[in-house]
């Protein structure tokens, strides 16, 4: 059985809506996946309703509430793509929670942006490059990809494509 003090359960249940997932699991924002798992196990040992069956209904109800949020935090943080979407949401001050379906939609959008470009110009030059690649005009493709990258220098996808084209040449 967990030896958590009832006061601790009540205190956490009270402030749970004000904690982000990192705070909830006592993690640094750059925590590794292994640390996230460890934290999930440790928190579950302490707050899982089964580990607190000796407590009264009210406290166990609060344990259940904490446990559900802990699971949610773990589900988001253990998956790199969901975590990326969540970090973006935290950075934009758009809330402390993220539903899994919401994370999925967000990272699907990120993927598309990465693949097609984030900026109108980036997209435009990438499309030209894609046409060049289709007709195997490697020189033009290289130029267009370089142009696309001047608008989105951080794009790993454009960089990768450029490498491919260079090899073809």
């Amino acid at each position: 059985m967990s030896d958590v003090a009832p006061l601790e359960i009540q205190a956490l249940a009270k402030i749970i809506d004000e904690l982000d997932y990192y705070q909830l699991l006592h993690l640094e924002t750059n925590a590794e996946v292994s640390a996230i798992k460890k934290a999930f196990h440790a928190t579950s040992r302490t707050f899982h309703p089964d580990a607190n069956r000796h407590l009264g209904d009210e406290l166990r109800e609060e344990c259940a509430r904490i446990s559900k949020r802990v699971t949610e935090a773990y589900c988001v943080l253990r998956d790199p793509r969901r975590r990326k979407a969540y970090d973006a949401k935290l950075g934009g001050n758009e809330g402390l929670r993220m539903q899994l379906a919401e994370a999925k939609a967000a990272h699907a959008r990120q993927d598309t942006e990465e693949r097609q470009g984030r900026t109108p110009q980036g997209r435009q030059f990438y499309q030209k490059a894609a046409q060049d690649i289709a007709r195997q005009d490697w020189t033009s493709a290289q130029q267009n990809l370089k142009m696309a990258m001047t608008f989105e220098p951080e794009s790993a996808f454009f960089k990768e494509k450029l490498e491919e084209v260079r090899k073809q040449k």
Partner: peptide, 16 residues
């Protein structure tokens, strides 16, 4: 439409 996908740990609560 899925609200909680398979192999999601429980207990959990999800909204759409």
């Amino acid at each position: 439409e899925p609200v909680i996908e398979r192999n999601t740990p429980v207990p959990i609560e999800q909204s759409r």
